[in-house]
Amino acid sequence: MKKLVIYLMSGRETPKLAAAAVRGGADLVELGFPFSDPLADGPVIRRAAERALSEGMRTRTCLECLSQTRELVGDLPLVPMTYSALLEAYGWERFAVDARAAGATSVIVADLPAGERPELRRIQLVAPTSTDERLRFAAAATDGWLYLVTLTGTTGARSDLSPELAELVRRARAVTGLPLYAGFGISTPDQARAAAELADGIVVGSRAVEVAALGPKALQAYVRSLRDAIDSVVP
Protein backbone atom coordinates (compact mmCIF):
# COMPACT_ATOMS: atom_id res chain seq x y z
CA MET A 1 0.00 0.00 0.00
CA LYS A 2 1.26 3.42 -0.93
CA LYS A 3 1.30 5.96 1.87
CA LEU A 4 -0.65 9.21 1.82
CA VAL A 5 0.73 12.17 3.74
CA ILE A 6 -1.39 15.30 4.24
CA TYR A 7 0.05 18.64 5.39
CA LEU A 8 -2.08 21.04 7.42
CA MET A 9 -1.15 24.36 8.98
CA SER A 10 -1.58 24.47 12.76
CA GLY A 11 -4.63 26.36 13.92
CA ARG A 12 -7.70 26.14 16.14
CA GLU A 13 -9.57 23.89 13.69
CA THR A 14 -6.58 21.73 12.83
CA PRO A 15 -7.19 18.77 15.20
CA LYS A 16 -10.67 18.27 13.68
CA LEU A 17 -9.31 18.76 10.18
CA ALA A 18 -6.56 16.22 10.80
CA ALA A 19 -9.16 13.73 12.02
CA ALA A 20 -11.14 14.34 8.83
CA ALA A 21 -8.02 13.77 6.75
CA VAL A 22 -7.50 10.48 8.53
CA ARG A 23 -11.11 9.47 7.84
CA GLY A 24 -10.43 10.30 4.21
CA GLY A 25 -7.51 7.90 4.21
CA ALA A 26 -4.39 9.82 5.28
CA ASP A 27 -1.62 7.63 6.70
CA LEU A 28 0.41 10.46 8.19
CA VAL A 29 -0.32 14.10 8.96
CA GLU A 30 2.28 16.84 8.85
CA LEU A 31 1.48 19.82 11.04
CA GLY A 32 2.95 23.11 9.89
CA PHE A 33 4.36 25.29 12.66
CA PRO A 34 4.24 28.71 10.98
CA PHE A 35 7.32 30.88 10.42
CA SER A 36 7.25 34.50 9.30
CA ASP A 37 9.78 33.96 6.49
CA PRO A 38 9.27 30.48 5.04
CA LEU A 39 11.85 30.19 2.24
CA ALA A 40 10.80 26.76 1.00
CA ASP A 41 7.14 27.68 0.65
CA GLY A 42 5.14 29.09 -2.22
CA PRO A 43 2.27 31.57 -1.79
CA VAL A 44 -0.43 29.19 -0.44
CA ILE A 45 1.50 27.91 2.55
CA ARG A 46 3.19 31.29 3.09
CA ARG A 47 -0.23 32.93 3.35
CA ALA A 48 -1.50 30.14 5.60
CA ALA A 49 1.49 30.78 7.87
CA GLU A 50 0.78 34.52 7.92
CA ARG A 51 -2.83 33.78 8.89
CA ALA A 52 -1.83 31.31 11.59
CA LEU A 53 0.65 33.80 13.06
CA SER A 54 -1.96 36.55 13.03
CA GLU A 55 -4.27 34.19 14.94
CA GLY A 56 -1.60 33.73 17.58
CA MET A 57 -0.18 30.35 16.60
CA ARG A 58 3.29 30.22 18.18
CA THR A 59 5.50 27.27 19.07
CA ARG A 60 3.70 26.55 22.36
CA THR A 61 0.22 26.81 20.87
CA CYS A 62 1.31 24.65 17.96
CA LEU A 63 2.52 22.00 20.39
CA GLU A 64 -0.90 22.16 22.09
CA CYS A 65 -2.51 21.75 18.67
CA LEU A 66 -0.30 18.73 18.08
CA SER A 67 -1.28 17.24 21.41
CA GLN A 68 -5.01 17.78 20.73
CA THR A 69 -4.58 16.23 17.30
CA ARG A 70 -2.85 13.24 18.85
CA GLU A 71 -5.93 12.64 21.01
CA LEU A 72 -8.14 12.46 17.92
CA VAL A 73 -6.03 10.26 15.64
CA GLY A 74 -4.87 7.33 17.76
CA ASP A 75 -1.47 5.95 16.74
CA LEU A 76 -1.31 7.67 13.39
CA PRO A 77 2.11 9.24 12.69
CA LEU A 78 2.12 13.00 13.26
CA VAL A 79 5.08 15.09 12.15
CA PRO A 80 5.59 18.81 12.81
CA MET A 81 7.07 20.57 9.78
CA THR A 82 8.72 23.88 10.45
CA TYR A 83 11.81 26.08 10.09
CA SER A 84 15.08 26.36 11.98
CA ALA A 85 14.20 29.75 13.45
CA LEU A 86 11.52 28.23 15.70
CA LEU A 87 13.84 25.54 17.03
CA GLU A 88 16.66 28.02 17.53
CA ALA A 89 14.37 30.15 19.71
CA TYR A 90 12.72 27.28 21.57
CA GLY A 91 15.90 25.25 22.04
CA TRP A 92 16.79 22.42 19.67
CA GLU A 93 16.81 19.63 22.19
CA ARG A 94 13.90 21.02 24.16
CA PHE A 95 11.84 21.14 20.98
CA ALA A 96 12.62 17.52 20.16
CA VAL A 97 11.64 16.44 23.68
CA ASP A 98 8.48 18.55 23.92
CA ALA A 99 7.29 17.65 20.43
CA ARG A 100 7.73 13.98 21.22
CA ALA A 101 5.80 14.45 24.47
CA ALA A 102 3.00 16.19 22.57
CA GLY A 103 2.66 13.22 20.25
CA ALA A 104 5.09 13.88 17.41
CA THR A 105 6.44 10.85 15.59
CA SER A 106 9.37 12.78 14.12
CA VAL A 107 10.02 16.28 12.79
CA ILE A 108 10.77 17.95 9.43
CA VAL A 109 12.77 21.17 9.27
CA ALA A 110 12.49 22.65 5.79
CA ASP A 111 15.64 24.77 5.97
CA LEU A 112 17.92 22.37 7.77
CA PRO A 113 19.78 20.26 5.20
CA ALA A 114 21.56 17.06 6.17
CA GLY A 115 24.79 17.96 7.93
CA GLU A 116 23.47 20.96 9.86
CA ARG A 117 22.51 20.20 13.48
CA PRO A 118 23.13 16.44 13.13
CA GLU A 119 22.04 15.93 16.75
CA LEU A 120 18.41 16.57 15.80
CA ARG A 121 16.89 13.31 14.56
CA ARG A 122 14.53 14.23 11.75
CA ILE A 123 13.11 13.29 8.38
CA GLN A 124 15.55 14.55 5.76
CA LEU A 125 14.57 16.09 2.46
CA VAL A 126 16.39 15.48 -0.79
CA ALA A 127 15.86 17.28 -4.08
CA PRO A 128 16.53 16.75 -7.78
CA THR A 129 19.64 18.89 -7.34
CA SER A 130 21.03 16.64 -4.58
CA THR A 131 24.17 14.79 -5.63
CA ASP A 132 24.33 11.02 -5.15
CA GLU A 133 26.71 11.66 -2.29
CA ARG A 134 24.16 13.90 -0.57
CA LEU A 135 21.37 11.38 -1.20
CA ARG A 136 23.47 8.78 0.59
CA PHE A 137 24.30 11.22 3.39
CA ALA A 138 20.64 12.22 3.89
CA ALA A 139 19.43 8.62 3.74
CA ALA A 140 21.93 7.58 6.41
CA ALA A 141 20.72 10.37 8.70
CA THR A 142 16.97 10.34 8.08
CA ASP A 143 14.33 9.17 10.52
CA GLY A 144 12.37 6.34 8.92
CA TRP A 145 11.71 7.64 5.44
CA LEU A 146 13.18 10.04 2.95
CA TYR A 147 11.22 13.07 1.74
CA LEU A 148 11.76 13.47 -2.00
CA VAL A 149 11.21 17.03 -3.18
CA THR A 150 9.85 16.26 -6.64
CA LEU A 151 10.92 19.49 -8.26
CA THR A 152 13.43 22.30 -8.18
CA GLY A 153 11.30 24.95 -6.50
CA THR A 154 9.05 25.88 -3.61
CA THR A 155 5.85 24.23 -2.36
CA GLY A 156 2.65 24.71 -4.34
CA ALA A 157 0.42 23.12 -6.96
CA ARG A 158 1.75 22.69 -10.50
CA SER A 159 -0.09 21.77 -13.69
CA ASP A 160 1.92 18.59 -14.19
CA LEU A 161 3.84 16.15 -12.05
CA SER A 162 7.52 17.04 -12.10
CA PRO A 163 9.43 15.14 -14.81
CA GLU A 164 12.40 15.19 -12.43
CA LEU A 165 10.77 12.77 -9.97
CA ALA A 166 11.44 9.52 -11.84
CA GLU A 167 15.17 10.12 -11.99
CA LEU A 168 15.30 11.21 -8.34
CA VAL A 169 13.48 8.02 -7.28
CA ARG A 170 15.89 5.92 -9.35
CA ARG A 171 18.93 7.59 -7.80
CA ALA A 172 17.52 7.37 -4.26
CA ARG A 173 16.66 3.69 -4.67
CA ALA A 174 20.26 3.06 -5.64
CA VAL A 175 21.49 4.32 -2.27
CA THR A 176 18.80 3.31 0.21
CA GLY A 177 16.15 0.73 0.92
CA LEU A 178 14.15 3.19 3.04
CA PRO A 179 10.65 4.26 1.96
CA LEU A 180 10.61 7.27 -0.36
CA TYR A 181 7.72 9.74 -0.12
CA ALA A 182 7.37 12.35 -2.84
CA GLY A 183 6.08 15.83 -2.16
CA PHE A 184 5.91 19.40 -3.60
CA GLY A 185 3.69 20.12 -6.60
CA ILE A 186 1.26 17.22 -6.14
CA SER A 187 -2.37 18.35 -5.94
CA THR A 188 -4.65 16.29 -8.21
CA PRO A 189 -5.62 12.61 -7.99
CA ASP A 190 -3.95 12.04 -11.37
CA GLN A 191 -0.69 13.52 -10.13
CA ALA A 192 -1.01 11.53 -6.90
CA ARG A 193 -1.41 8.30 -8.89
CA ALA A 194 1.50 9.10 -11.18
CA ALA A 195 3.76 9.97 -8.22
CA ALA A 196 2.68 6.86 -6.32
CA GLU A 197 3.65 4.72 -9.30
CA LEU A 198 7.21 5.88 -8.70
CA ALA A 199 7.51 6.47 -4.96
CA ASP A 200 6.32 4.63 -1.85
CA GLY A 201 4.16 7.50 -0.70
CA ILE A 202 3.08 10.99 -1.60
CA VAL A 203 2.78 14.26 0.32
CA VAL A 204 0.09 16.83 -0.47
CA GLY A 205 0.41 20.24 1.15
CA SER A 206 -0.73 23.43 -0.53
CA ARG A 207 -3.91 22.05 -2.07
CA ALA A 208 -4.81 20.32 1.21
CA VAL A 209 -4.37 23.64 3.03
CA GLU A 210 -6.68 25.32 0.52
CA VAL A 211 -9.34 22.62 0.79
CA ALA A 212 -9.05 22.58 4.58
CA ALA A 213 -10.27 26.18 4.56
CA LEU A 214 -13.59 24.81 3.25
CA GLY A 215 -14.02 22.60 6.33
CA PRO A 216 -13.58 18.98 7.47
CA LYS A 217 -16.12 17.48 5.08
CA ALA A 218 -14.51 19.00 2.02
CA LEU A 219 -11.08 17.94 3.24
CA GLN A 220 -12.20 14.38 3.92
CA ALA A 221 -13.66 14.11 0.40
CA TYR A 222 -10.52 15.55 -1.15
CA VAL A 223 -8.23 13.21 0.79
CA ARG A 224 -10.49 10.31 -0.19
CA SER A 225 -10.04 11.21 -3.86
CA LEU A 226 -6.26 11.08 -3.40
CA ARG A 227 -6.52 7.82 -1.46
CA ASP A 228 -8.57 6.18 -4.19
CA ALA A 229 -6.12 7.40 -6.80
CA ILE A 230 -3.03 5.98 -5.12
CA ASP A 231 -4.82 2.76 -4.17
CA SER A 232 -5.46 2.18 -7.88
CA VAL A 233 -1.72 1.82 -8.42
CA VAL A 234 -0.88 -1.80 -9.10
CA PRO A 235 1.94 -2.78 -6.71
Partner: peptide, 12 residues
Amino acid sequence: GGRYVPETLVPA
Protein backbone atom coordinates in the same frame (compact mmCIF):
# COMPACT_ATOMS: atom_id res chain seq x y z
CA GLY B 1 26.62 31.68 10.06
CA GLY B 2 26.02 28.22 8.63
CA ARG B 3 23.67 27.06 5.93
CA TYR B 4 20.03 27.07 7.01
CA VAL B 5 18.57 26.55 3.56
CA PRO B 6 16.38 24.03 1.78
CA GLU B 7 18.33 21.04 0.47
CA THR B 8 17.70 22.16 -3.12
CA LEU B 9 20.28 24.94 -2.66
CA VAL B 10 23.01 22.96 -0.96
CA PRO B 11 24.67 21.63 -4.13
CA ALA B 12 24.62 25.17 -5.59
